[in-house]
């Protein structure tokens, strides 16, 4: 059984949802980033969703764009990011690591070579933000050969045919977005995605996890109530990092506390105050 399957099985037994924080690997430098990822795990993250920095992140809003800029401006290379993940994998053999990145980083040097490299770094899944299911074939095939799960996005505007294609192709989990737009927009959930989660279950898809617009414990709770198996929080965390870099020890404590509060909301006894 792979790490995602074991995680969802454990959470099902505990009657909990998954809380999955997102950060950019290498933001703002490799040692600090490693400490940040460790803090997220200490706070109780069930899995990590990790950005590989790209120069032209068209699916990201200003907060995550700025993280990519910080990381690349610091001279961080993709090989440095993967080396850091390999280190973290040795420390945490069971926590699923998902990568979120862009097509050119996967494609430019040969798709097969990319998936070999990330598999060696201990990565469990890869979501390529600008590869829709229509173009996903070669990516999914190369991923499967290395035992890496291809993750696809289920959108609120998908018709049944597209949703079925996403359900069939996505492994590990399905990344469900609840609204149009890019990451980090300051608005609450606009489309009610219950129907998407229900259809994904009917199609025997991998568990659906809600991304976009998750920045408070109440939103985690709401996501699970809509039928999500978990919730991903990105911009809320990356913004804390941007604001907290002046005092890294305090930042690490703040992130650990934030994750602990968000994780607490995944338990059934959690009381929405």
């Amino acid at each position: 059984m792979d790490r995602y399957a074991r995680m969802f099985e454990r959470l099902a037994l505990q009657r909990q949802g998954a809380f999955i924080p997102f950060v950019m690997v290498g933001d703002p430098d490799i040692p600090t980033s490693l400490d940040i990822m460790r803090a997220l795990i200490r706070g109780g993250a069930d899995a990590l969703e990790l950005g590989l920095p790209f120069s032209d992140p068209v699916a990201d809003g200003p907060v995550i764009q700025a993280a990519a800029v910080r990381t690349l401006a610091g001279g961080v290379r993709i090989s440095d990011c993967l080396e850091a993940l390999r280190t973290l994998r040795e420390e945490h053999p069971d926590v699923p690591f998902g990568l979120l990145t862009y097509a050119n980083l996967v494609f430019h040097d040969g798709i097969a070579s990319f998936y070999q490299r990330v598999a060696r770094a201990g990565v469990d899944s890869v979501l390529v933000a600008d590869v829709p299911v229509r173009e996903a074939g070669p990516f999914a095939t190369a991923a499967a050969q290395e035992g890496v799960a291809p993750v696809l996005i289920a959108t609120p505007n998908a018709d049944a045919e597209r949703l079925a294609a996403v359900a069939a192709a996505s492994r590990g989990y399905v990344y469900v977005v609840s609204r149009s737009g890019v990451t980090g927009a300051e608005e609450t959930v606009r489309h009610e995605p219950e129907a998407v989660f229900r259809q994904l279950r009917e199609m025997n898809a991998a568990p659906g996890v809600l991304g976009f617009g998750i920045s408070t414990p109440a939103q985690v709770r709401a996501a699970l109530a809509m039928g999500a198996a978990g919730a991903i929080s990105g911009s809320a965390i990356v913004r804390r990092i941007a604001d907290g870099l002046g005092d890294v020890p305090a930042l690490l404590g703040d992130l650990e506390t934030f994750v602990r509060e968000m994780k607490a909301a995944t338990a059934p006894e959690y009381d929405v105050a």
Partner: peptide, 11 residues
């Protein structure tokens, strides 16, 4: 060529 865009733009 192709259509390498976020899924949300495919429709």
């Amino acid at each position: 060529g192709g259509t390498y865009v976020p899924e949300i733009l495919m429709p």
